[in-house]
Design a protein around this nucleic acid. Structure first.
Length: 413
RNA sequence: GGGGGAGUUCCCGAGUUGGCCAAAGGGGGCAGACUGUAAAUCUGUUAGCUCAGCUUUCGGUGGUUCGAAUCCGCCCUCCCCCA
């Protein structure tokens, strides 16, 4: 990782497959190789935690910071009040000011795990600070004049919305984000904005604005969204997004998510989501058939380690090996602890499944059992009315398996 | 502001001579088989519950009726054409 300092980050990012589009490829590359550049990435506070879609941006910021550049994570406390229409087909729900502020705080906390904020090496700003008190007429005169509606309507990001409808509120999003870039350029000499590829139009808006208003160069660069080989967005599970918050997605589930990616996506994930040297990425990514499971283990471990720390990564790995391999059975397996009374009152298998939230409804539980999807201590349950007793407990706990790979340990105390 | 159209179960999308609709079909999800904790494929399943019965659903609300997703009134939202 040390040798990254010597190489131009631009080349690193390109080699690893992050880059999607660059406004001025040669100039940006030269700039990054010449001086310490302050850049920013915006995050919309649409939820109370970052998810894997954000994580790729965080990885980019980390690569950049390691190369001596200064990242600014911008939380969209102001833009979040409007909602980005890019690529969306439906109108966004408007969030209340309180929700936006709450989410912004949660983001702040998570960023500090990945970036070094000491001595001004990274910054976190909230565009609510300058957007919320804007004077409408002044804004129109300073920023609005520079935007051509004709060009905006032609932009790719509005296309789908032109068919389904686009409110004036959302139409303004591009101006706000462009203004962000301008403000940051003036305040902190930010010359470069990064973002997901869906942000291309918005980034271009800011680049153009700065060049017009300030007459100084500004650049933009976008990254490929984390998608599967067949183009679907990654990071979605039956339970929703894969979150970075351990309370929303446990380290074990997080580990399992990466352990189970498609063969075809392993290499890409290793390059984008870990810091492993590219030679290693190439080697692991080219493994075939059963062998590629090794690569998936490395992927799962590394990503979990970066996000949740070494200790949690070890635990997740141990638990996985215990359940799917031969490891010791004593490993930390996800589970629930219930009281003796609860166990007695919910001795019916369906009730118990419901109690520990392995099923969303009892109807679902009955269905699962009918289809052979539930096992207790590796014994398939076939009867909906199956009742559990003390004899099912081993050292005060029993292991339930739902489907092929969802394990849940129930401990009775 | 004027005229026209639409709002269905996770999503898309059938269904309007009122009962046979918890609601076609597809997608997605889940489960089973096959496997490598993969993909593809095949099969089953996909509102809830005290589950061979019952309860709550078809934008909201109030009606008509023995009975309404299907008919009527009002409201909300969205789309299209005109301004």
């Amino acid at each position: 990782m040390e040798d990254m300092k010597k190489r131009n980050v631009f080349d690193v990012l390109k080699e690893r497959g992050y880059l999607a589009q660059v406004t001025h490829e040669d100039e940006v590359r030269e700039l990054l190789g010449r001086e310490s550049v302050t850049f920013y990435i915006g995050f919309d506070p649409t939820a109370d935690s970052l998810h894997v879609g954000h994580f790729i941006q965080v990885m980019v910021m980390t690569h950049m910071q390691r190369a001596g550049h200064r990242p600014i994570a911008l939380v969209g406390g102001g833009t979040g009040m409007v909602g980005d229409p890019s690529g969306k087909t439906d109108m966004r729900k408007m969030m209340t000011r309180e929700t936006v502020e709450e989410n912004s705080r949660a983001f702040k906390k998570q960023f500090s795990r990945f970036l070094d904020f000491s001595e001004g090496k990274a910054m976190l700003v909230n565009n609510a600070d300058w957007l919320l008190d804007l004077n409408y007429v002044e804004f129109l005169r300073e920023v609005g004049v520079h935007f051509s509606v004709n060009r905006m309507l032609a932009a790719e990001c509005f296309k789908s919305r032109l068919e389904k409808g686009l409110s004036f509120l959302e139409f303004n999003y591009m101006l706000m984000q462009s203004y962000d870039f301008l403000v940051l350029n003036r305040k902190y000499n930010v010359k470069l904005q990064l973002g997901g590829d869906d942000q291309w139009s918005n980034i271009l808006g800011g680049v153009d604005l700065i060049r017009r208003v300030e007459g100084t160069p500004a650049y933009g660069m976008t990254f490929n969204l984390l998608t599967t080989s067949d183009g679907r967005k990654m990071g979605k599970t039956e339970a929703g997004a894969v979150w970075l918050d351990p309370d929303k997605t446990s380290p074990y589930d997080f580990y399992q998510y990466w352990r189970n990616v498609d063969d075809a996506d392993v290499k890409n994930c290793l390059a984008l989501l870990t810091f492993l040297p590219m030679e290693e990425v190439e080697r692991l990514g080219s493994l075939k058939d059963e062998k590629i499971n090794e690569a998936k283990k490395v992927l799962a471990y590394e990503v979990t380690r970066i996000v949740h720390g070494e200790e949690e990564a070890e635990k997740a790995k141990a638990a996985s090996e215990a359940l799917f391999g031969r490891g010791s059975s004593d490993a930390q397996v996800p589970g629930t602890t219930i009281t003796r009374d609860e166990f007695m009152e919910n001795s019916n298998i369906v009730d118990l499944l419901f109690l520990v939230k392995l099923i969303p409804s009892k109807g679902e539980g009955r269905r699962l059992i009918k289809q052979g999807g539930i096992s207790v201590n590796e014994q398939r349950i076939s009867d909906i009315n199956h009742t559990l007793t003390d004899s099912d407990l081993e050292d005060g706990s029993l292991m339930i398996r739902r489907g092929k790979k969802v394990y849940h340990k129930v401990t009775v105390e």
